[in-house]
């Protein structure tokens, strides 16, 4: 049984239909990437899974349970963590409070402290800045904080929306390394990226979205070698 199953969802933004029967599935332990140009529906797919934009039609199942239309906070509680588009770190809360807030759905106070330490080890730059407020961090640090915050809920599945967007090249490499590390520690990842080359380099499998439809899917290697993908997204 797949960890996450998205079954032909239609999602609207107001009256505009953004997704036309998108289906995908993610197995436990995988990194799956969703690539496509601006407006292809990548973020909408993610928001549909996380409950921020419920679909008009279709189902979303997580570990066999139907989660279609559940409120976002319930979805987080079930084990789907999310790093939203544009990071959306809490600018006026300290790094520590940001992390603690990520653990909002948990009740085990002692373990939360342990996990906070673990995040600060995973992201040493945050450790130096643990008492600074989120808004004073650089873009890359904010991205790390957003990932750390999402991990604090101990998700089974982590949704990442454009984590490399707007970052310096060296920071992009760091972030992708972090994604690989997190996955190796046992978290399944759904990664949305415009940087298709980097995304396919870390992913096991990928889906290509165009105007709200899945037009291609396959192993990361197969997509990297596909002439269509190379032409449209890899600039080769």
């Amino acid at each position: 049984m797949a960890l996450l199953e998205v079954d032909s969802i239609n999602t609207f933004y107001g009256r505009v239909q953004a997704l036309h029967g998108v289906s995908l599935s993610i197995e436990e332990g995988e990194i799956v990437t969703l690539i496509g140009s601006n407006g292809a529906g990548k973020t909408t797919t993610l928001r549909t899974i996380s409950g921020l934009n419920p679909p008009a039609k279709g189902r979303v199942r997580f570990r066999g349970r139907d989660i279609t239309g559940l409120a976002p906070n319930r979805v987080v509680g079930l084990g789907i963590g999310q790093v939203p588009e544009g990071r959306r770190v809490f600018h006026r809360m300290t790094v520590r409070d940001n992390l603690f807030l990520g653990a909002y759905v948990r009740n085990d106070r002692d373990d939360i402290r342990g996990d906070e330490e673990q995040m600060l080890t995973l992201f040493p730059r945050l450790k130096e800045r643990r008492n600074q407020i989120g808004g004073t961090l650089s873009g890359g640090e904010q991205q790390m904080l957003a990932i750390g915050r999402a991990l604090m809920s101990r998700p089974k599945l982590l949704l990442l929306d454009e984590p490399s967007l707007g970052l310096a090249p060296i920071m992009v490499d760091t972030i992708f390394q972090v994604i690989r590390d997190i996955n190796q520690r046992g978290t399944t990842i759904l990664l949305i990226e415009q940087n298709a080359a980097k995304a396919l380099a870390v992913a096991n499998r990928g889906y290509v979205l165009e105007t709200g439809r899945v037009v291609k899917e396959g192993t990361a290697r197969a997509l990297l070698e596909s002439p269509d993908v190379q032409r449209a997204y890899l600039g080769i």
Binding site: P72, V76, R88, G102
Partner: peptide, 8 residues
């Protein structure tokens, strides 16, 4: 939105 996405 970020608060909701963090489970609040």
């Amino acid at each position: 939105v970020a608060a909701a996405a963090s489970g609040v």
